[in-house]
Every structure is written in structure tokens, then in C-alpha cells.
């Protein structure tokens, strides 16, 4: 036997690390090569095929009508989501209410608005005047005091907002309901044991905790909404897709303008994804011990150590 080291190892000497040959991953290399070849083929076609019309696209992508369309798409998304979330919260609370009339009404709303295509709903809102020429205010089945022309009451902009917002509310109410149900019952019990009212419990204790579950699918819905706004071209209401299509048909170059529109949508959804990351991070406070670093913090940590 050789002289063995004493069993009590000295603190100053760290134990010898294991030296082993790492597992090889040949599959990864094969996949990498295959994907690299496919990517090279795609880039080559994008660059060499003149039908992409990059120059033409660049000339038109930032023209005033397109930029106006981008702005319309953005605020239409924001406004529709606002309607959807506000109404969705109300519907979710109604649905969970012990009052059978309220919960039944909320169920019916979701059934109708989730069960029909949003495109059909948009067209119906846009053409409501052919169903009801006039809308009047007064005593039900009695005298009428104010009479409005439906066409004036619901201009295309209102039809677009109603169609998108009311449809979204049906989806949002289910998302928010799931969020509320995900909060432990002990939370509302503790809150009511402290003498807080049902509304206070909901607003201060349950909804903030439901947000953790609600935010990711809501981000999903917002990104989906940004693209769904392209359907309001059928109301008809002028937004990004309407404008790029118009340029496409006017210049007999429809395809390049479709790519332009896609690029714009992709850019906008990318920005939304960044926003979603930070919102999720905010609502994670308290439920994780240390918040994960933001990408900017990660970059700083990697490169600019001196700065911190």
C-alpha cells in the first residue's frame, strides 16, 4: 500500500475535481449543418430573386399612408385590449358571483361572442344599419324621446372597436376567471377574517395574485389582437393592412407589400414581447425570492463589470 493521505483533509487544499470525457453529441452537429444549409438556401433566394422587390418595399414601407396605418393598428390594438380587459374583469366577476342571474348572463355572453368568428362579428357591426335603421331612447314599448340613425351612431371606427373589444372580452373573461380560481382559497379566507369586504378582498388580495397567471395569456392575446386588427379592413376601416394592400393593388405589386406588412407586424409584436417580459417580472415579486435579472442587467454583468 502506498502512503495514503490522512482522512482529515486540510481545509486549504480543495478536493481534486473529477476529470471525465464529456458525452459527445453528434446529432447536434448533424442538425446544425442541415439547418445552416437550409438557411443559406433561403437567404440566397431572398437576395437573388428580384420578385421580392426589396427596393420597392423600402420606398413604400415608410410612406405617410403606411405610417398612418401603423399608428392606427397600434391604437386600435390598445383600445380593443382595454375594452376587452375591462369588460373581461367584469364578466369574470359576474361569472363567479353567487347570483345565478349574473353568472348566467356572463356565461351567455361568452357563449355568443366566443362561439362566432370575429370576422363575422366585425362585418355585422359594420353593417348594423341594414338590420336596425334607427336606434331610439325612450320607455320600452312606449314613447320614443331620442331617435338616432344607426349609421351615425356606429361609424366604422366604432364598429371596429366594438367588434374587436367585445369579442376579446369573452376570451379575457375566461383568462381572468382562471386567474382568480388559481389563487389559494386561504387568501380570501384570511382577508375576510380580517374584516375586509368582498370587493376589497377581490381588488387588493385576489386580483393582484391572479395577475401572475393572467399576464402571460394576456400578452398572447395582445399579440394576437395586433394581427386581428387587420380584419377591420372588412368593416371597412383603414389600418396598416388596408394601406399596404391599397398600395399593392395600385402599383400591381401585391406580393412585396404583403411582405412589408408582415415586417411591420413582426416589428410591433417584438416590441410587445419585450413589454410582456417586464410586466411578468413585476407581478412575480413576492412569489420568487430573487427576481431574475433583466436582459440589460445580464448584458451589463457580462461586459461592463466596472460600471456596476
Amino acid at each position: 500500500m502506498s502512503t495514503s493521505a490522512p482522512t482529515t483533509t486540510k481545509r486549504s487544499e480543495p478536493p481534486e475535481p473529477i476529470k471525465a470525457i464529456p458525452v459527445r453529441h453528434p446529432g447536434r452537429w448533424v442538425a446544425m449543418v442541415a439547418i445552416a444549409v437550409l438557411a443559406a438556401m433561403f437567404v440566397n433566394s431572398v437576395v437573388s430573386n428580384p420578385n421580392w422587390q426589396w427596393g420597392f418595399q423600402l420606398d413604400n414601407a415608410f410612406t405617410p399612408p403606411v405610417l398612418k396605418g401603423v399608428v392606427t393598428t397600434l391604437w386600435l390594438t390598445a383600445a380593443s385590449m382595454l375594452i376587452g380587459v375591462a369588460l373581461g374583469v367584469a364578466l369574470a366577476i359576474m361569472r363567479l358571483s353567487p347570483n345565478p342571474v349574473l353568472s348566467g348572463a356572463a356565461w351567455f355572453y361568452v357563449w355568443v361572442f366566443r362561439g362566432t368568428p370575429v370576422l363575422v362579428q366585425l362585418v355585422i357591426w359594420g353593417n348594423l344599419n341594414s338590420l336596425y335603421r334607427q336606434v331610439s331612447l325612450g320607455v320600452p314599448f312606449g314613447p320614443e324621446w331620442f331617435v338616432f340613425e344607426t349609421r351615425d351612431l356606429i361609424p366604422p371606427i366604432a364598429a371596429a372597436l366594438l367588434g374587436l373589444g367585445l369579442n376579446e372580452a369573452a376570451y379575457m373573461s375566461e383568462i381572468i376567471r382562471a386567474g382568480i380560481l388559481s389563487v389559494d382559497e386561504g387568501q380570501s379566507e384570511a382577508s375576510s377574517a380580517l374584516g375586509m369586504s368582498r370587493m376589497q378582498t377581490l381588488r387588493r388580495i385576489v386580483l393582484p395574485q391572479a395577475m401572475r397567471v393572467v399576464v402571460p395569456p394576456t400578452g398572447n392575446e395582445t399579440i394576437s389582437m395586433l394581427k386581428t386588427t387587420s380584419l377591420v379592413a372588412y368593416v371597412p376601416y383603414v389600418e396598416l393592412f388596408f394601406q399596404t394592400s391599397a398600395i399593392g393593388s395600385r402599383t400591381f405589386q401585391p406580393f412585396p407589400m404583403l411582405v412589408t406588412a408582415s415586417m411591420w407586424y413582426l416589428a410591433m409584436t417584438s416590441v410587445l414581447m419585450v413589454g410582456q417580459y417586464y410586466i411578468e417580472r413585476y407581478y412575480a415579486r413576492g412569489s420568487v425570492r430573487n427576481l431574475p435579472p433583466t436582459p440589460i442587467q445580464k448584458l451589463r454583468r457580462r461586459f461592463g463589470r466596472g460600471e456596476t
Binding site: L194, G195, M196, P208
Partner: peptide
Amino acid sequence: IGMVFQRFNLFPHMTAMQNIVEAPLRA
């Protein structure tokens, strides 16, 4: 009537201080 639960039921989205002051402030 104060109540203390087996599983604490603290509000996880609030600090200890916020947990304590919530009901006296609101209720």
C-alpha cells in the same frame, strides 16, 4: 375577532409590513 391559520395565509405579494397594515387601513 383575530384569526391565525395553520398555513399562515400571509398575502405573498405584500411585504410583512404591508400584510399587517392592509386591513387596519382598508377595513
